[in-house]
């Protein structure tokens, strides 16, 4: 197992090296940063001075190794627009995004698995049909339409929940959370549902398909023939076998939640890294874009590593060899 993880770690490092090269290349391809930093009326001397300060005249290799060196120290330089260190900006915004992703992951996993099991076992009941046809909407409607629809219904029409922003924030050390106040929950619930809906549908349909597959296997029939209760068959025997393939997709999807949060955060003006990224794109704020890219890639790599380790925990055939 240790050699397996070591191999995976080496692969992850390779991925990160490629991503860092891509994000570094942003600096050279997305226009001249100096133009974006100084006013129209800046003199040539001022421009040269900034160029020099940013090290833009050094050879590419030097610039890249400096970039990687700084990346390892989690330093991504100054934001062109806000003129503050990018790592500080990300650290400030990160709790908002992570909490949003966490809440929507819990929602989509919880409801996705429960409803998937239900519709997999009672495939012909009318409740299953309703769930399945509703879930189609979850896949086919784009996230921003769902978000705007929810805002219209709950914030504008019913006036139960705030339409945007993140309120009720409490600082726990450097981590600013909105999950311990009622106000915070009121503001996170709509964006979290919006973000989770697509993943929820996907997990639901996957669990349902796997469940139906597993229910047809011989060992379920044999468990029935031994007189085990339906509950033991469904949850102890069937569910765990369902989870092996589901874990892969779930792992990738949590990464997807981070990626999709860009749209959701924009719709709900959620002050997370996604919103920051969109703003950075608008102003060609390359350091933020580069840092965000590296950050999302790192998240994907970590999640995939966790998924691989989870296989070992769930499936003895991988853990113990054939």
């Amino acid at each position: 197992m240790i050699s397996f993880i070591a191999k995976r770690l080496a692969q992850s490092l390779l991925v990160m090296a490629i991503v860092s090269a891509v994000s570094f290349s942003l600096f050279n391809f997305v226009g001249d940063p100096v133009n974006n930093m100084v006013g129209q009326d800046a003199t040539r001397e001022q421009r040269l001075e900034i160029r020099d300060k940013l090290g833009l005249d050094d050879p590419i290799i030097t610039q890249y190794s400096r970039f990687v060196g700084n990346m390892l120290k989690a330093e991504f330089g100054l934001s062109y627009r806000i003129k503050r260190p990018v790592d500080d900006l990300i650290a400030e915004r990160l709790p908002a995004t992570l909490e949003l992703v966490f809440v929507s992951a819990v929602i989509s996993l919880f409801f996705g698995i429960i409803l998937g099991i239900y519709t997999g076992i009672k495939r012909n009941s009318w409740i299953s049909r309703v769930i399945l046809s509703t879930s189609l909407a979850g896949v086919s409607l784009p996230t921003f339409v769902i978000g705007i629809g929810l805002i219209y219904l709950f914030a504008v029409h019913l006036r139960w929940l705030p339409s945007s922003g993140r309120s009720g924030v409490v600082a726990l050390g450097w981590w600013k959370t909105s999950l311990i106040t009622l106000e915070g929950w009121r503001s996170i619930i709509l964006p979290a549902i919006t973000l989770s809906l697509f993943q929820l549908t996907l997990i639901l349909r996957l669990v349902r398909a796997e469940m139906m597959e597993v229910m047809r296997t011989d060992f379920i029939k044999f468990a029935r023939a031994r007189g085990l209760s339906e509950r033991a068959i469904n949850f102890r025997h069937a569910l765990r076998n369902t989870l092996v393939p589901v874990i892969t997709i779930i792992g990738l999807n949590i990464g997807g939640l981070v990626a999709f949060s860009v749209v959701t955060e924009t719709v709900f003006q959620w002050p997370g890294t996604g919103l920051m990224f969109i703003q950075a794109v608008n102003f060609v704020d390359v350091p933020i874009m580069a840092a965000y890219l590296v950050f999302v890639a790192l998240l994907f790599v970590i999640i995939n590593l966790i998924v691989d380790i989870l296989y070992f925990v769930v499936d003895p055939r991988i853990r113990l060899g054939g």
Binding site: F219, F222, R224, R226, H237
Partner: peptide
């Protein structure tokens, strides 16, 4: 089922739950 009439199926490769130990499946039954 199980208590008074036992059943044995054709393919031993697929009759057992691959994710549970033999002991767990026996004790459960």
């Amino acid at each position: 089922r199980g208590k008074r009439i036992g059943m044995i199926f054709q393919d031993p490769q697929t009759s057992l739950n691959p994710l549970m130990t033999i002991g767990a499946q026996l004790v459960e039954t």
